[in-house]
């Protein structure tokens, strides 16, 4: 049972990690906890489902369609909900984020209906065993997709021009503008990238649990936020680590303690880590001289 729960936890953790990266990236650039991010995850799941059922797309195409659609939603949210009040105190943007979340949930109910929709069996699910480690096809697909997307993202952030612009903007937006960086564009691209990763997570969850519904992003959104904080908000590897820790401990906790405590475990870990290391596991601790 341990091995089964471990692979379940890693799959779950990969999904938290993907979602957490979106949180952490947006926070890194504009210091905003984007509470609409969990709902972007839901929109991504619905768009992917629509791509498969209504538009008869191939699974991979539908997945990319979901990511691209969610990226567009991300840009629109940044433009319509955050950009106009960007100079206002942070609390205003925070409220706007919560409003956007409620709007997206109701928008989804309007378009796709409030009922839970079944996600078709798109992948033949087999169970593989090697060296005592058991994993299903779906779990391997989730882990593989996560590794692929994170590798691409890491490459973009570390080695491309726009990635360097993103890192500079996150460190000091005014100084970045003085380098000639179009920081507005950087903000939109960050929202697009973060939202597309969140959408990928939503689509993978839809496939894993075979269910998609308008409120599906709420709790995972909160947990992904916790994962981002545990790993050190603003740090992409931290969000990865935080996500995996959350997923694994939740699965193991549900199996060995009680499944009723599944959600509580996430918050216990959060409190424990914040008490020991307030900046998070990989939180930035660059020493600065003044």
């Amino acid at each position: 049972m341990f091995m089964e729960q471990l692979s379940n936890g890693i799959a779950l953790g990969s999904i938290y990690a993907l979602t957490a990266i979106g949180f952490t990236m947006v926070y890194g650039i504009i210091r905003l906890i984007n509470f609409a991010h969990g709902d972007i995850y839901m929109i991504g799941a619905f768009l992917t489902l629509t791509g498969i059922t209504l538009l008869n797309m191939h699974l991979v195409m539908a997945f990319l369609f979901g990511m691209a659609g969610a990226a567009l939603f991300g840009i629109l949210i940044a433009k319509l909900a955050y950009s106009p009040i960007f100079k206002a105190p942070r609390i205003n943007i925070f409220l706007s984020a919560i409003g956007t979340a409620i709007f997206l949930e109701n928008f989804a109910m309007l378009i796709w209906g409030p009922e839970t929709q079944a996600f078709p069996d798109v992948i033949q699910n087999n169970v593989y065993t090697f060296l005592g480690f058991r994993a299903s096809t779906l779990q391997l697909v989730i882990l593989g997709t996560t590794i692929l997307l994170v590798t691409v993202l890491t490459y973009v952030v570390q080695y491309t021009k726009i990635g360097r612009a993103m890192r500079c903007t996150s460190q000091d937006m005014d100084a970045a503008r003085l380098m000639g960086i179009n920081t507005n564009r950087v903000v939109y691209i960050t929202f697009a990238l973060g939202s597309s990763l969140g959408a990928a997570a939503g689509a993978l969850v839809g496939m894993y649990y075979k269910a998609v519904f308008p409120m599906m992003g709420f709790v995972p959104g909160l947990k992904a936020f916790i994962a981002a904080v545990i790993g050190g908000i603003g740090s992409i590897p931290g969000a990865m680590l935080g996500g995996i820790i959350m997923g694994v401990s939740e699965s193991l906790g549900a199996a060995y303690i009680s499944s009723g405590y599944r959600d509580a475990i996430a918050f216990i870990i959060l409190i424990a880590i914040i008490l020991i290391k307030p900046s998070g596991l990989l939180g930035k601790a660059v020493k600065e001289k003044v």
Partner: peptide, 26 residues
């Protein structure tokens, strides 16, 4: 027109060479 801002405002998490190359961004 290039401004050296008050308080230096260098990119603390980039190394010296990367900082200089950011100046040549455009």
């Amino acid at each position: 027109i290039c401004q050296v801002p008050e308080g230096r405002r260098i990119f603390t998490a980039l190394n010296v060479h990367e900082n200089l190359m950011m100046g040549a961004y455009l």
